[in-house]
Simulated assay, not measured.
Amino acid sequence: MIGPVIYLLCTLTSLGAALLLWRGYRRSRQRLLYWSALCFAIMAVSNGLLILDLVVLPDVYLLPWRSGVNQLALLVLIYGLIFESD
């Protein structure tokens, strides 16, 4: 019973972090904030897939998709850390 609530809170937290980072990027135009916001937005999608996988569609195996989305989020952040650092 508490699992779906925690999954939803993790999704909302990732989305909130993405929105705050995006707002910071729009104010300061620091490119690292852009890449971090994009990473957290993709992580929110990954958390949404987690809800779909474990709560909404428990018979469907979405682990490869969730892992792929998580890897994409980390690749975006690594790209930003490597190529956008001053």
Rank of each mutant, 00 (worst) to 15 (best):
residue 28 S to Q: 09
residue 65 W to F: 10
residue 76 V to F: 04
residue 7 Y to M: 07
residue 70 N to L: 13
residue 29 R to E: 05
residue 25 Y to G: 06
residue 78 I to Y: 08
residue 35 W to F: 11
residue 75 L to K: 02
residue 23 R to A: 09
residue 20 L to E: 03
residue 73 A to G: 09
residue 39 C to P: 00
residue 13 T to Q: 06
residue 30 Q to V: 09
residue 75 L to S: 05
residue 25 Y to E: 06
residue 55 V to A: 06
residue 48 G to K: 06
residue 72 L to Q: 10
residue 57 L to V: 13
residue 25 Y to V: 01
residue 64 P to W: 03
residue 81 L to E: 02
residue 86 D to W: 03
residue 40 F to H: 05
residue 63 L to W: 13
residue 36 S to H: 05
residue 54 L to C: 15
residue 34 Y to E: 00
residue 5 V to N: 03
residue 20 L to F: 10
residue 85 S to W: 09
residue 28 S to D: 04
residue 28 S to R: 03
residue 63 L to P: 14
residue 69 V to D: 01
residue 38 L to I: 01
residue 26 R to G: 11
residue 11 T to A: 14
residue 43 M to P: 00
residue 53 D to P: 01
residue 78 I to T: 10
residue 5 V to A: 09
residue 33 L to C: 10
residue 24 G to L: 12
residue 61 Y to E: 13
residue 30 Q to T: 14
residue 86 D to G: 11
residue 38 L to H: 04
residue 16 G to C: 08
residue 27 R to S: 10
residue 74 L to C: 08
residue 72 L to M: 03
residue 7 Y to E: 12
residue 38 L to Y: 03
residue 36 S to P: 03
residue 24 G to H: 12
residue 48 G to Q: 12
residue 43 M to W: 01
residue 70 N to T: 09
residue 38 L to D: 00
residue 27 R to F: 05
residue 62 L to D: 08
residue 12 L to C: 12
residue 19 L to C: 07
residue 36 S to K: 03
residue 43 M to G: 01
residue 27 R to Y: 04
residue 67 S to V: 15
residue 82 I to H: 09
residue 1 M to R: 15
residue 23 R to W: 11
residue 43 M to F: 10
residue 15 L to M: 10
residue 13 T to H: 07
residue 44 A to R: 00
residue 52 L to V: 10
residue 46 S to K: 00
residue 13 T to M: 08
residue 36 S to N: 01
residue 64 P to L: 05
residue 70 N to C: 06
residue 79 Y to V: 07
residue 15 L to C: 06
residue 18 A to F: 11
residue 2 I to K: 15
residue 78 I to F: 07
residue 3 G to V: 13
residue 58 P to T: 07
residue 3 G to N: 09
residue 65 W to P: 12
residue 24 G to Q: 10
residue 53 D to N: 05
residue 71 Q to A: 15
residue 68 G to S: 14
residue 72 L to D: 11
residue 27 R to K: 08
residue 62 L to F: 05
residue 27 R to M: 09
residue 52 L to H: 05
residue 78 I to S: 09
residue 62 L to R: 05
residue 9 L to A: 15
residue 63 L to R: 13
residue 39 C to N: 00
residue 82 I to V: 13
residue 74 L to E: 04
residue 15 L to Q: 11
residue 64 P to F: 06
residue 43 M to L: 03
residue 32 L to P: 01
residue 37 A to V: 02
residue 81 L to D: 04
residue 47 N to Q: 07
residue 59 D to N: 11
residue 76 V to I: 00
residue 6 I to W: 15
residue 51 I to L: 04
residue 52 L to Q: 05
residue 74 L to W: 07
residue 75 L to V: 06
residue 74 L to P: 04
residue 26 R to F: 06
residue 77 L to T: 01
residue 51 I to S: 01
residue 51 I to A: 02
residue 58 P to V: 08
residue 82 I to D: 14
residue 50 L to D: 15
residue 29 R to A: 04
residue 57 L to W: 01
residue 3 G to C: 13
residue 70 N to M: 06
residue 14 S to D: 07
residue 11 T to R: 09
residue 42 I to P: 03
residue 26 R to V: 07
residue 83 F to A: 04
residue 47 N to H: 11
residue 66 R to H: 08
residue 32 L to I: 03
